[in-house]
Each structure stands twice: as C-alpha cells, then as structure tokens.
Write a protein that binds this DNA or RNA. Structure first.
Lengths: 234, 234
DNA sequence: TGTGTTCTTTTTGTCGACAAGAAAAATACA
DNA sequence: TGTATTTTTCTTGTCGACAAAAAGAACACA
C-alpha cells in the first residue's frame, strides 16, 4: 500500500527545473527579451519559477559556461554584452563554419538526415511569408544547425551552434529597425545547398556555404554602415 | 570595534573553492590521473576538500559544460570517455584549427605576443631534454594555445583549447607505453612556425600549421595501428 | 559644503538537512 | 533453484537559513 501526500505540490519532476530555467533564459537572451547588460537577480528568478535558488544558480552557471551571461564575483550577474568591436572575428568564424559544416554534410550525411533539414527549410520559408521576424531568425539558425549535425563532427557543430546563437542576437538587433531584410533569395540558396548536399557534391556545398555566409555578413555590415550609431546604442 | 571569532576557520576566501576544485579536477582528468569512465562522488570530494557539496556541485556543472565529465540524471556522474570511434572527427577539427590559428597569428599578432610564445617553446624543448612526458604534453598544448591567443579570435581559440585538452588525454594514453615519441623534429617545426608568424607570412604559417598538425595526427594514428587493442582497453 | 568613517541594506556564496529516484539487497513464492 | 516483489541503501536534487562582500546610506567632523 502506498500513502499519497496531497499536501506537497512538487508539480514538476525532480531535475527538470534546471533545464526549464536554462532553456527559457537562453531563449529570452537570444531573442533580446533580456537586453545585453541587464542584471539578473537570483531571488527574483526563484520567485518567478517558484523554486529555491539552488537550481536557478545551476542554470546560471551553465549559461555562463555558454558565454551568455557574465558573473562578477560576489557581485551582480548580467546578460553578456554583444562585442561590436570584434564583429569581424565573429564573421570570420561564422563564414568558416558555414563552409566546413556544409561541406561535411555533403560528405557524411545519411538519408535520414534530409527530412529534418527540409522541414526547417519549409519552416523558414513559412516564417518569411508570415513576416515573423523572430521565427525567421530562429528557423534559419535551426536549418543550418541541422546541416551541421548531418556533417557529424561534434566539435564543429558545437562551435557553429554557439556562433548561430550569437548571430540570433545580432540579427534580432537589426530586425528591430529594418524589415524584409532577409530576401527571398535566401530561400533559394537554401534549396541549392540542400541539393548539393543530397548530390554529395562536396566542393559545390563548400562553395555555396561560403557564398551564403558572405552574403549574410555583407547584409549585416551594410546595415552597420548605414547607421553606425548602433554600436554605441547598446 | 570588532569582535573576532577564533572558532571558525574558513581558511580560504569566499568563492575560491569552486575554482580550486575545478582546476584540480580538470588537471587530474586531462593527465589521466582520473581514468575515463571512473565515477565521481560528490560526498567524497566534499570531504577531500573540506567543504560542502554546493561548491563541489558547481565545479562539476562547469566541468560537464566543458565535456570533461558526464552526468546521468539522478544517478552517477563520471569522467567522460575518450571517443575512439570518432577520432577522425577529432583530427579533422584539430588540423583545421592548427591551420587557422597559426594563420591568424601571422596576420594579427602584436610584438608583445612573441615573448610568451617563445617561452613556451623553450619550456617544451626543456621538457623533451628532461624526458618529462607530462610536461611535454602540457607545454606543447600551451605553446599552440599561446599562438591561438595571438591570432585574436576568441571563437577559434575556444574550440582549439578544447581540442588541445582532449589531445592531452589522448597523448597521455600513448605515452604510457611509448617513449621518445615526440621527436626533436617538432622543436624545429615550432621554431619555423614562430619565424613565419614573426615575418607575418600568412600562407607559410598556414602551410606549416597544416604540416605540423598532420604529422602529429600521423604519429598517433601509427601508434593506433601498431596496437589496435587500445580502443577496447578503455 | 566636502570628505572620511561607520552603519545598513542588498546580493551572493556556503552550509547542513531532507526528500526523491534508482540500484542493490533481501524476501516471498513457485 | 529461479523469478517476482518488497525493502533497504546510496546518491543526487532541492530547500531554507546563515555568513561574507560589496555597494549605498547615514553620520561625524572640519
């Protein structure tokens, strides 16, 4: 026989709390719902999620490991700033990882990888139709992350995910002022990339990845030059 | 006026505990003093370091973020295994990062970067003279990490450090059975690399980085084929 | 008014204790 | 003896409370 205690309301499984807090804060940071530099209060989060500070703290430690928040010892913890001064290093890494992951996907993908890649491709297309900026950014990142997974090199995938994350924040920043920036052209390029991967045309995949990446970088840099004030704004 | 409580013995500054545990465990894992797959007990560590489980736990979360340990929910946590089946993905990433970081160092280094690079170069040379295996592995990694720093791309540096860490474990494994493996030749190659960086010869640095990396990979792979049993041994 | 010092407040870091889960041990039963 | 079930044990995940740092407020004094 088993006694049931109706008094206590855990309401959630033991260990799911950390992941929930981590995922939610992560999304809020990447969607700029939490502005770079804004403070993070443990007690406040504990109240919000109705749990003690311990699991909150663990989620924060993990976010710090991802570089999404920064902790000053004994003092406040805050959302990491976007480093506008070193954007070129970010672009360098991004372009290389676009190339490498697309190339490896053409080389190493398995048939079962393609459906999920295609699905994100369609999601991205739908987001553009719907003019849903946040969805566009997120599905674009998911599309390329799926390609990277098909490449089956966890080291590259790890770095690439991190770069795509940072890219989400940067793109979100510019989309606030400019609309219709991701042209439909990107949808076609995505289709070309899928075709090259499926055909296992490694060199073509590499080339397309490079072109695609450089086009995105050029877009963002163009916006940069249009209103150079932005790097001071945040 | 201030009362002094002679009873409590903190014996260490507030917040230094986590870093100490993290650094120590990290070194023990990378030097294979903690074997891959061996269990990690929080309570045991708490006793060993004379602190509560909370800071121990934080250090473990960070190590898990680095991929050095793995945690099964509600169950044990253990030192990450070395993935011998996917060594080729590791080598792919390692070679590319050797190339990229050396190339960027030739491009972006500042005069003040060279002294520390040279120092690690000498340390490495001294470690070979002294036949100190652990020191050879560690200083070699430090040498290339310093070059990567001079390249000034934190994204590449981050991935490269992770790869060099993993490399420390793999090399340590082979050095247990084979001596005099890192030939003196590597010292000369390091010197060539330094020269190319200092001359800002980007293409040459790239080429040397690639050759150097592929030589190391070939060495390890040769050992692999000699005694193919090792991948089952651990 | 300006400056240096002491108190107060706020937030983090650490602790000991307890409860939930899962494996291991013990037990019941055929 | 072999298998299913209960009990025990052991480890982790979570909690509430307290202590240490650092910032800010209040105060003294020139």
């Amino acid at each position: 026989m088993r006694d049931i205690d109706p008094g206590s309301h855990p309401e959630r499984k033991r260990g799911s709390g950390v992941k929930m807090v981590y995922d939610l804060l992560r999304d809020e940071i990447l969607d700029l719902k939490l502005a770079p530099g804004s403070p993070i209060d443990e007690v406040q989060l504990a109240e919000r999620f109705k749990m003690s500070r311990t699991p909150i703290r663990e989620a924060l430690v993990r976010l710090a490991g991802d570089g999404l928040i920064e902790t000053l010892p004994n003092r406040s913890t805050m959302v990491s700033n976007i480093d506008f001064l070193n954007l070129s290093t970010f672009f360098d890494a991004l372009v290389l990882m676009y190339r490498v992951t697309t190339r490896l996907a053409a080389q190493n993908h398995r048939p079962e990888d393609l459906p999920s890649i295609r699905r994100f491709h369609e999601d991205y297309s739908a987001a553009i139709e719907a003019r849903d900026t946040l969805a566009m950014i997120a599905t674009n990142a998911a599309f390329h992350a799926a390609i990277a997974e098909a490449g089956r090199n966890p080291y590259f995938t790890g770095l690439f995910r991190r770069l795509l994350d940072e890219g989400r924040r940067i793109l979100r920043l510019y989309y606030q002022s400019y609309d219709e920036l991701f042209p439909r052209q990107f949808v076609d390029e995505h289709a070309e990339i899928i075709a090259a991967i499926e055909a296992r045309d490694v060199e073509e995949a590499d080339r397309l990845g490079k072109v695609h990446a450089e086009q995105i970088v050029a877009q963002v840099q163009k916006l940069f030059s249009r209103n150079g004030k932005l790097d001071i704004a945040l």
